[in-house]
Design a protein around this nucleic acid. Sequence first.
DNA 1: GTCTATATACGGATAGAC
DNA 2: GTCTATCCGTATATAGAC
Lengths: 192, 192
Amino acid sequence: MLAAREEAIIQAVNRLLAEKGFDAMTVDEVAADVGIAKASLYKHFQSKEELAAAAMVRVMQRAEEFLAAVDAQLVPLDKLKVVVRWMLETLLAGQMPTLPSQNSSLRAVLLANRDYIDALMRISDTLGRWIESAQADGSVNSRLPAVAVLYTLYARACDPVVEFLKAGGQHSDAEIVELVMCTCFEGLNSRG
Amino acid sequence: MLAAREEAIIQAVNRLLAEKGFDAMTVDEVAADVGIAKASLYKHFQSKEELAAAAMVRVMQRAEEFLAAVDAQLVPLDKLKVVVRWMLETLLAGQMPTLPSQNSSLRAVLLANRDYIDALMRISDTLGRWIESAQADGSVNSRLPAVAVLYTLYARACDPVVEFLKAGGQHSDAEIVELVMCTCFEGLNSRG
DNA sequence: GTCTATATACGGATAGAC
DNA sequence: GTCTATCCGTATATAGAC
């Protein structure tokens, strides 16, 4: 079954991207992980970049599903918090693929991928509406440009603080999530 | 002059690390940037990893100099803010070297580098004292473990929000610094 | 210490049989 | 579509002359 095989490939790529990132991930590893020959991989995907792009599209799909399932009754701020918590938990579970931050061959492929770009824009639209609503109702600082808030939320998906705290071994995963949630929304300063 | 030559090498490495990161930086580029043959580089440094380590040691030295020059009259919170502002400005200036977040050959070399580790520990000690003082005087949230605060500050040195906002082109460097300072210390939530 | 030239390894991608 | 075997570019590192 072709679809099942490609699903297995994408899962392997997702896991390896989360574990070591795009540069360190090799196509040989992916093939070994799936249990097929490297040449067979190239019958399904044209390049390493498209392999990674497929995994990113899948993540975007999951993100959209998650957004759609967020309780509509929540106030906007709580919707945003639910999303960030999900990103942190995914990161802690070793299932959040990480891309090279700087420009690379992968960037060009992703920007050319309609599915990826469309999903990213729909997600950004949804989050953007929630952010503006939260600013309108006074729960999110309205002196921050909405786009700055959006990027700050997105950045939690690759926050190095998570792995540092996890490496320290002093905190459970749940505690790490709450600590990062706190620094993100409450900030480092004391309140009141 | 040997020292001057090595200084030029370290500066080139620092610039390239900041621009494209460790993986994408090639030794050929470093040699070309310095204007010497690649083989000559290897007379000064044993490997690409040691090349990067030397640049990181240099950055740590600069950080220590900066810490030592911070106005002792400032309250602890303001000392921390001055440091974060310096990190963000260095990042925006394209002079903050970025390392691979995951484990790599570079990590082993850095951990084995006494100068690097010692400087990192001295810096962490100083910042740790400021953090605890700031928590004691009520200016930093004392429900956060000091180490979580420390990591959150360190993470500003590679915050992707900075490059996203810069790529957006809607904000000056000074505005970007203030926006990230705000999200870091004030958080996304409204105050009061 | 600097150079040119080269050794060596690795990894992305392909050829061609089945 | 899957395999084995191979190509080939790139990048780290080194040899050896000067």
